[in-house]
């Protein structure tokens, strides 16, 4: 469970010479709300995902662009809460093989109770946590509870971070390191900044865990371009959008074409 599970699952994929691909979905978005999670998780696992980033919807997601904002509103309108998501995850904990990483803004877990949250994550088989509004300066609110329950605390690095901060973020990250690849919010972009390869290379150098690039990544070509400088990608808005439109076959194609290194679009 936790860090070891992410480590092992990633190793198996990388041993097959594949890029790591982590899809993001909003928990509770789509038909039947949170009840569709076991089926969606199974589908993404079968499609070749390395882990699933499960977004806990929040009313005020300042790091997110329009697509994920809208998905969050749809999920909240269906009554999604952190507790309901955890309860559903508990149901198929034993049969699920793919690592589960929760993405949540700090407020829903603060209100839930930090220690209670970490204990619940361990109980229901959550392996890692991403919290976009906890920078280095505020980590002590949650770090100890996550360590106690062996939950990987995945840190986010940014293109605006100073070299010293990048080094510290890379050093601390557990499970994997989330390299935010744009100066902005989540959402589809046609291209990334010129200095992106230097940034990813720097993070690779300092991190003891795999480095995944996310934000603005939406197609296999970008996955391969970025994947050349790190271990893989995280794709959010594009997946949320395709699932919302009911285009599951396209999600599968996107994942398959992104992970296989021989299918580089050259």
């Amino acid at each position: 469970m936790g860090k070891e599970k992410i480590n092992q699952y990633f190793n198996n994929i990388q041993a097959n010479d594949q890029h790591l691909f982590v899809p993001y979905i909003v928990a509770g978005d789509g038909e039947n709300g949170v009840q569709n999670l076991p089926e969606r998780i199974q589908f993404l696992q079968d499609s070749g995902a390395a882990a699933i980033e499960l977004g806990i919807p929040f009313s005020d997601p300042v790091a997110d662009g329009p697509t994920i904002q809208e998905g969050s509103i749809r999920a909240l309108e269906q009554g999604t809460t952190l507790k309901k998501v955890l309860d559903v995850l508990a149901e198929d904990k034993e049969t699920r093989t793919i690592p589960i990483v929760l993405m949540t803004y700090v407020n829903p877990i603060f209100v839930f109770g930090i220690e209670r949250f970490a204990a619940e994550c361990e109980r229901v088989g959550v392996d890692g946590i991403i919290i976009p509004d906890i920078p280095l300066e505020e980590e002590d609110l949650i770090a100890e509870a996550l360590t106690t329950h062996n939950i990987a605390f995945i840190r986010l690095a940014a293109l605006t971070s100073t070299p010293e901060r990048l080094q510290e973020i890379a050093r601390r990250s557990e499970g994997f390191l989330y390299a935010v690849a744009v100066k902005g919010t989540t959402g589809v972009r046609t291209s990334h900044e010129d200095n992106i390869s230097t940034y990813l290379t720097t993070l690779k150098k300092h991190a003891s865990v795999p480095v995944l690039a996310g934000f603005g990544v939406s197609n296999p070509q970008q996955a391969h371009e970025l994947g050349a400088h790190c271990d893989g990608v995280i794709v959010g808005s594009k997946i949320v959008d395709l699932l919302h439109q009911g285009k599951k076959a396209k999600v599968r194609t996107l994942i398959e074409e992104s992970i296989n290194k021989q299918e580089v679009g050259t």
Binding site: V62, A63, V106, P132, D133, I134, P135, L136, E137, E138, L156, A157, A158, L159, T160, S161, T162, R165, I169, V180, K183, G184
Partner: peptide, 20 residues
Amino acid sequence: YRGRFGDFGGRFVPELLMPA
């Protein structure tokens, strides 16, 4: 120095904004 007023305050923002 951390921007705390007792139990309140702080800097709960994405890393992107921290340098600013």
